[in-house]
Amino acid sequence: MLRKVYLSVIGLLGASNASADWTLNMPRGVTELSAETYALHMQVFYWCCAIGVLVFGVMIYSLIRHRKSPGAEPATFSHSMKAEVIWTTIPIIILLILVVPSARTLIKLEDTRKPDMTIVATAYQWRWHYRYQGQDVAFYSSLARTSGVARRLDSSIDPFTVENYLLDVDNPLVVPVGRKVRLLLTSNDVVHSWWVPELAIKKDAIPGFMNETWFKADVVGTYRGQCAELCGMDHGYMPIVVKVLEPQAYAAWLASRQPTALQSADTN
């Protein structure tokens, strides 16, 4: 335990170089927009740091310099128009600097036009269902059995021995690399939310409405996320796994999931 406390102190001080287990920052992600989001996040973070250093610096200086010492007389001033105008204007300027790139990224995020493919994701308590538009491919995606067993209150399985504990599913969502995938989200019961940090996407699945979002993954790999809106008892147990494959591998996978192929190998 002490080691953890100690490490955390180091962690707090040396923020950004995270070791494998000590993720301290938002992932840069694997899409153009996730990188932009990350940059925005860092930009506003640095502004806050700068303001913080300045403001806290002045405060600390004042706390030391202006503490009561023998013979010291407090000043009596109680307003200054000039100062007030300055510290009203400067924050406004900073905010304007922040708003412009944010708005630009936001507009791109909302632009779901001209996708290469469309997937309809429907949320259920507590699993996801994916349907590939224009293909005969549809399946449920639920928490992997290994985690499902280990997560029980009375299970004696140590979560550390389970690979990707709570972040693994039986049937991941599979998409090709470098393609604009439009995701249409809805829900069958309560509000859920589809979140994969590396794709920088989070969008609510709302019963009776269809929400749109999109991503274009640039790097092959497996990306994990979770349902991000409280949806009842097992809200913590409906992970999302996205497998990004090379186009050929994706085509092969798609073919294997077509109904004819499915008859021989029913699941997985």
Binding site: E110, V120, L184, T186, G208, F209, M210, E212
Partner: peptide, 17 residues
Amino acid sequence: PWLGGDSNNFFTNLLLW
């Protein structure tokens, strides 16, 4: 109007209603 497909709800109407 959204249920009828307005604004950013084209698919709401097309696929659900």
